[in-house]
Design a protein around this nucleic acid. Structure first.
Lengths: 91, 91
DNA sequence: TCGATACATTCAAATACTTAAATTAATCAA
DNA sequence: TTGATTAATTTAAGTATTTGAATGTATCGA
């Protein structure tokens, strides 16, 4: 994995709201709607949208439009690649 | 692992210089001196010191004083715990 | 002891990130 | 088509990070 992408993923993971979104994503069985995020994170809608964007820019989550709604899903593949990179750091 | 620590480790990993330090740490067989870092990162000594501090604050590296010198070592345990947390994010 | 070396700390400037208010865009329901 | 809903974008303010210059601290060798 490219250093640039490690950087981007790490940055995406360096915020409590974004970590919480990912944790809830697992709870909800890998699928979450935007308005559901607002239920457990006490931020305005634009802020949540910003955090979701950080996660999608890092490819950590995948966005699926469903009419008016947007469904978010975890991208396990990229997470695996990230973990793989971290493991190469070990001797 | 606590969210706060995930956050701190992620932040430490979100900078190209710090990623490079960790990569070189592996190259050098898990042991690196401060002046060696300056050889491969084009930053002033205080900046390098700052980045090293981010890594030690995140417990990613362990510092060992050796007289005038300082030896840095990777903390594989914390990296393992971080990876373990990331794996719990997957469904 | 004194000068040199190895790092850390402090401070200030530049840059980047976080957040909310306002606005925009797209879709749905009537 | 119109009004309501869902979410993204723009803008601006506040906050945090990054960086280097200057300085401080500790250790080593002469």
């Amino acid at each position: 994995m490219e250093v640039r992408q490690v950087e981007r993923i790490s940055k995406a993971l360096s915020d409590p709201s974004r970590i919480l979104i990912l944790k809830q994503l697992r709870q909800k069985e890998d699928c979450l709607y935007c308005h559901e995020i607002a239920d457990f994170i006490d931020l305005t809608q634009p802020s949540i949208s910003h955090h979701v964007k950080q996660l999608t820019d890092a490819d950590l989550i995948v966005v699926e439009k469903e009419g008016r709604n947007v469904k978010y899903k975890l991208n396990s593949t990229i997470l695996d690649e990230y973990v793989q990179f971290l493991n190469t750091l070990k001797v």
